[in-house]
Simulated assay, not measured.
Amino acid sequence: MLTLHLTPIFKARRIEKPYTFLVKAGLSPHSATSIINNKGRIFRLDHIELLCDALNCEPNDLLLWIPDSNKNYPENYPLKNLKQPESAEDWQDALSKMTYKELIEATKKGTNEEKQ
């Protein structure tokens, strides 16, 4: 089953009021509520584009695939790319545990990747 996976993105972007953020980004109040509550069955392409633009992410970042426990999927099943790790460490906690030198190196790596 495909579902929206916005909570980690909101947390990473330090968005404390997702509803307000989405409405200010251009979604209608009804659409913002549906998206936050993961109630929508139809996901418009212009909403995907708006979310990606506002959250600075890719469409794959917005989606989470939850496999059906009654099915066996081949190892190369394409939707497995949308399966999030089961225990992802909070990035802020990870950063707080890094030494200053590790932070500098990570910043350098990020800057070099952006230039390429």
Rank of each mutant, 00 (worst) to 15 (best):
His5Met: 03
Thr7Phe: 01
Phe10Ile: 01
Arg14Leu: 07
Ile15Gly: 10
Lys17Pro: 00
Tyr19Asp: 06
Tyr19Pro: 00
Leu22Ile: 02
Gly26Lys: 06
Gly26Val: 03
Pro29Thr: 04
His30Gln: 12
Ser31Arg: 15
Ala32Phe: 02
Asn37Asp: 11
Asn38Phe: 01
Asn38Glu: 13
Gly40Lys: 10
Glu49Phe: 01
Leu51Lys: 08
Leu51Tyr: 12
Cys52Ala: 07
Cys52Val: 04
Asp53Trp: 01
Asn56Leu: 04
Asn56Thr: 05
Cys57Gly: 10
Asn60Tyr: 07
Leu63Ser: 05
Leu63Asp: 06
Ser69Asp: 08
Ser69Ile: 03
Asn72Pro: 00
Pro74Thr: 04
Glu75Asn: 09
Asn76Tyr: 02
Tyr77Ala: 07
Asn81Gly: 07
Lys83His: 05
Lys83Met: 14
Lys83Pro: 00
Pro85Asn: 11
Asp90Met: 02
Leu95His: 04
Lys97Trp: 05
Met98Thr: 03
Met98Arg: 13
Met98Val: 01
Met98Phe: 05
Thr99Leu: 02
Lys101Tyr: 06
Glu102Gln: 15
Glu102Thr: 00
Glu105Trp: 02
Ala106Lys: 13
Ala106Ser: 14
Lys108Ile: 12
Lys108Trp: 08
Lys109Gln: 13
Gly110Thr: 03
Thr111Asp: 04
Asn112Gly: 01
Glu113Leu: 14
Glu113Phe: 07
Lys115Gly: 01
